[in-house]
Structures are given as structure tokens and as C-alpha cells.
Amino acid sequence: MTLDEASDTHSGAERSSLLQSLVRLNRYALLLLLVPAGVIYFWPGLEWKKQEAAKHTLTELTTQRDALAHKVAKLEKKLELIKNDPEYLETMARDKLSLQKDGEIILHFEE
């Protein structure tokens, strides 16, 4: 066996041990990454972000519901006035349709 053959054999053994070390290191790195990822994914206490987002959405929807309920109440009141109050109906007709009684003059002022 010549010196070149011995060095080739020796460098092959070094490469093999280096590769084995790198494979072991990669396994440990993979385990170190998988464990926290698994804990984060499966940990039930970490769903607080989802809960906060749901609470925020609930607050927005509650606000919208209250605003719409207020609008419905105003429209129902207006409907009752239109049905039962001829004076209100007359006022609305004059304002919206620019109607007038005989002998009246309508003046419009721009702001």
C-alpha cells in the first residue's frame, strides 16, 4: 500500500465519520425544532389569540346590532306617525314633495 492509497483510505474514513456526525447533528436539530413546534400546535392555552380575535369580532357585531336596532326603532316610530298622525303626514309631504296648500308660497333657503 502506497502513501497515496493510505491517505485516500484515511480521508475516506474521515469523511465517513464527518458525515455521520453531521447526520447526528441534523437529527438533534430536527428534534429541537419539532418539540417546540408540536407544543405550540397542540397546546390549548395558546389559543388566546383566536379568543381575542373572536371577542373583538363579537364586540363589533354587537355594536352593529345595537345600531341597527336603534334604526329599526326610529323607522317603526316614523311608520306609526305616518299611519296615525295626519299632521305629520302632511308635514312630510310638504317637505319631501314640495307640496303646498292653495295660497301658500314656498321659499327654499340654501345654507
Rank of each mutant, 00 (worst) to 15 (best):
Q51H: 03
D66Y: 02
T9P: 04
L46T: 07
L32S: 05
A37C: 10
L61V: 01
D85M: 08
L33W: 03
E5I: 01
E5V: 02
H10M: 06
E47G: 14
E110R: 13
Y88K: 05
L58M: 04
T59I: 08
P44I: 00
G38K: 06
G103I: 01
D4E: 13
I105C: 09
S21E: 11
R65M: 07
L32T: 03
L68Q: 10
L25P: 01
K55P: 00
L33C: 07
L89S: 02
E5Q: 12
L99A: 03
L32I: 05
H56L: 07
E110D: 09
E111W: 09
Q64A: 12
L19M: 11
V35K: 07
E104P: 05
P86G: 04
E52V: 02
A69K: 14
A13E: 13
K77V: 03
Q64W: 06
T63Y: 03
D102V: 06
K77P: 00
I40A: 12
I40Y: 11
N26R: 03
E111T: 10
G12A: 14
K77Q: 07
H70I: 15
E76N: 15
E111D: 08
K55G: 01
S98Q: 07
L30A: 11
V39E: 00
V72A: 15
N26S: 09
L32K: 03
Q51N: 11
L68W: 03
R24F: 09
A37N: 06
R15D: 12
L19N: 11
S7F: 11
A69M: 10
L19H: 02
A37D: 00
A13M: 13
L22E: 15
T59M: 04
R24I: 06
L68R: 11
L19I: 08
W48M: 08
H108D: 14
L81K: 15
M92I: 04
P44M: 01
R24C: 04
A69G: 06
D95C: 07
F109E: 01
N84D: 13
T2P: 09
P36C: 00
E110N: 08
L18Q: 11
T59H: 05
K77G: 15
S98E: 10
L46W: 08
I40F: 14
L31G: 14
G45I: 01
A73D: 07
A54R: 14
K49F: 13
T63R: 09
P86Q: 08
Y41K: 14
G12D: 15
E110W: 12
S98L: 07
K74D: 01
R65F: 09
E14L: 14
T2Q: 13
A6P: 05
L75S: 10
K77H: 15
Q64C: 01
E14K: 08
Q20C: 02
A67P: 05
L58V: 04
E104G: 07
L46R: 08
I105F: 15
E87Y: 01
A67W: 00
S17F: 11
N26A: 09
N84F: 05
A29R: 11
S16W: 14
K71G: 01
I82H: 10
I106K: 02
S17E: 13
S7P: 01
G103M: 04
V23N: 11
A13Y: 08
E90K: 09
K78A: 12
L89P: 00
A69P: 04
Y41R: 13
E110T: 07
L58N: 09
L68V: 07
A73C: 03
S7A: 14
H108F: 10
I40R: 06
L68C: 04
E76K: 15
Y28E: 12
P44Q: 02
R94F: 00
T59K: 10
